[in-house]
Design a protein around this nucleic acid. Structure first.
Lengths: 125, 125
DNA sequence: GTACGACTTAAACCATGGTTTAAGTCAAGA
DNA sequence: TCTTGACTTAAACCATGGTTTAAGTCGTAC
């Protein structure tokens, strides 16, 4: 098994080391092992967990909810249905947010088009 | 011209009245008129401005940048190019964010599918 | 052996984006 | 006239999500 240092883990997901420490403190990354010198070492399992944590972050799930999810992962098999339901709900929330952003983007593009017409008008005149 | 009260404006965009007052204080909604009693009244022009402000909010533009944009709107014609460039940049940022969210959503959907298989497996056994 | 870089901790600090509170004004209806 | 509801203000308060600081511990390269 290959282990990662905190700097490698941070680089891999393009976050800062202090953010990783903060996530551990908040319970998003429990059970991180340490080497003899007390330094964090990230196993492949931890890196997989971190990957899904980062997915949830990128889709704006609050830290408190990610913690709930991770707690259920640690708890084991009998939380499978709850995790499934949580992920389904979250998926719907993400689709809704993407939809709001896409709609708002249309308004912004309309603005851009009017600005294009107006600056074109000024250049031709 | 039809004017809106703060409660009507808030209802129209589904935000709270205090958020509207906060936006005015932060300079996102300058030049709001008042009636004889000192209450805010929103003209159609103000409602149009509010609409684009809300679009920018929904696409996660920070308040400080929205203020810059609104300042340029107030300043007039000679800021057209800057506004156009700002909106173009913002459009690219929004597309990038939607793309990150869409990619992360794939990871979440993969999780959902594995959970579906696992819960199905448990039910069949 | 010593200097350096990578790591550790706890606690303080920060920006962002509002929300809440307290105290007051005003218009309209009973 | 008195009360009610919708509004006003400034200032205090809050949650979220980190970042920064200070002080210290290792391991390795010179």
């Amino acid at each position: 098994m290959t282990y990662c240092s905190i700097s490698e883990a941070a680089a891999k997901f393009n976050i800062s080391e202090s953010t990783l420490r903060y996530y551990e403190k908040k319970g998003l990354m429990p059970l991180i092992e340490r080497d003899e010198a007390g330094r964090r070492i990230f196993s492949e399992d931890q890196m997989s967990l971190l990957e899904i944590v980062i997915c949830l972050k990128h889709t704006h799930m609050p830290i408190s909810s990610i913690k709930q999810y991770v707690d259920w992962v640690i708890e084991g098999e009998n939380t499978l249905e709850r995790r499934l339901e949580m992920m389904n709900r979250h998926k719907q929330a993400v689709l809704a947010e993407i939809s709001v952003m896409t709609e708002s983007l249309k308004g912004i593009e309309a603005k851009i088009n009017r600005y294009l017409e107006r600056t074109r008008g000024r250049i031709e005149e």
